[in-house]
Write a protein that binds this DNA or RNA. Structure first.
Lengths: 259, 259
DNA sequence: CGAATACTTGAAATAAATCAAATAAGGTGG
DNA sequence: CCACCTTATTTGATTTATTTCAAGTATTCG
């Protein structure tokens, strides 16, 4: 989802060299590592951003650890009992809903700082699979204690409500895209959306590597993979972008937005 | 959205005969009426359902009044400052997002007990217009005091989180519908969804009156009004439903679900 | 390195949109 | 309460954007 070269500069979660702490006991086989919000480069992007420095330890008591999810592995599956939310520390994930009839549909892509699992609170079980697009790290946010802390800390509560509301908003926008836009508009909107989110995170936003396949993009946008490919090619022919496999360079964001 | 004959039996909000209380002063010209959760027939469906009887007065202190929205009028407009959520007491509403370029898109229909405005919490302003499909009544839930109360009352907090999460889930399902389903499947899913929601509310669920136009249904489903009409006609020809203008009778819900 | 997966491109098929026109329903003022 | 005007709905004929089918090429990662 982001350029590996860029990522190296911003990497905060995956242990590099001798920096990785020793794993602590993990349930279900996944190794878990102690989480330290203080000093995490994503602190301004995640739920911790709502807290004053002196309140951070309270959150760290709840978000006690993080874990790895390797490329292709699932963080959770549809039907699993809901227990935790997950905030991406590094890497990226997709969520996939399995429509009746074996048909699958990608409902979202998640970048560092974004939280997965919000749709599971209401029913007590996850409604989709969350799968890593690349080796990724996620902070584990056990929901019950998080909810408790939200009753004690007003700023945390407010931030959490905004997170939920923004997820509603994100999906509203996706619904508009899926119901009213041409395939060209969908692909253009997708590229701009990815670019904006990368920029917010401090990554290169005009030149990046897509971590998902054409098929996954198409599923997310409600079009076929061939249509994604053809549209990329057309945009390139028109000088709006450069396509080199999964690597995309945006030349004319204005023109893309105007499609 | 529901059959007027049925509605009469379940009407709890709109004053009938001499039952309507005197209006209290309303801001912005809309007349407001004191809200009484106790004795409201929708109490089991709305956010009040999470509270014990002795806690109800606390909620009533927050949800102090309700107001009418006449057919075609807006409850709020995109860009208005977010201040309150609204729970439908009677009637029905649609939410409409105005896509760049004058294009409009219906993002939801709301029945009694359902809450409008959840997408506005994150940005502090409404992201869409909410428009009454018929003369309707809504309880006004000022958000700041509601959020405060959620810190004090755990069951209320938990219910509110579930409301938000279920809205995320609803939109996920709509995204799947919009991206992967044929027009027949969309229309069938729509009819089943309306039927189920009417049933949950105690209304007739196999024989009801749609309060929205074919164009509004089409907008919601991402298809053209002619396609909605043709699909209704086809379903009728196949003996699955009976269509009489806005009045719909479902003969074979199983078969509809299997499309 | 090399099998498996992912991507591109062309040609034919198709579901739904668009254009068009007739009919029906609903609300308003006289 | 009715007549009329507007709005909503149905249905048909044609067009079109996107899918489907197909085949060759390029990547990727184990």
């Amino acid at each position: 989802m982001y350029d590996a070269v860029e990522a190296a500069n911003l990497e905060t979660a995956v242990g590099i060299g001798g920096m990785q702490p020793a794993p602590i006991s993990g349930s279900g086989g996944a190794r878990q590592f102690p989480a330290r919000c203080n000093g995490c480069g994503l602190r301004k992007l995640c739920i911790a951003s709502s807290l004053d420095p002196e309140e951070l330890p309270q959150l760290e008591a709840v978000v006690s650890h993080w874990r790895m999810v390797h490329r292709g592995e699932s963080l959770f599956r549809a039907g699993d009992r809901f227990q935790s939310l997950y905030t991406v520390r590094s890497g990226s994930l997709k969520t996939v809903a399995s429509h009746a009839g074996g048909h699958e549909h990608v409902t979202g892509f998640f970048l560092p700082g974004e939280t997965v699992g919000l749709g599971a609170i209401g029913e007590g079980e996850y409604d989709c699979d969350a799968i890593a697009l690349e080796d990724s790290a996620v902070c584990v946010l056990p929901f019950a204690p998080l909810e408790s802390l939200c009753r004690d800390v007003k700023s945390l509560q407010q931030h959490f409500h905004k997170m939920l509301s923004r997820e509603i908003l994100r999906e509203s926008k996706q619904m508009i895209l899926l119901s009213g836009m041409t395939s060209e508009q969908r692909v253009a909107a997708f590229l701009i959306n990815v670019s904006n989110r990368l920029q917010e995170r401090g990554y290169a936003s005009r030149d990046f590597t897509l971590r998902m396949t054409r098929e996954e993009i198409g599923s997310y946008l409600g079009i076929k993979l061939e249509t994604v490919s053809r549209t990329f090619s057309r945009f390139q022919r028109e000088g709006l972008i450069r396509v080199d496999g999964k690597r995309i360079e945006l030349f004319d964001i204005e023109a893309l937005a105007a499609i």
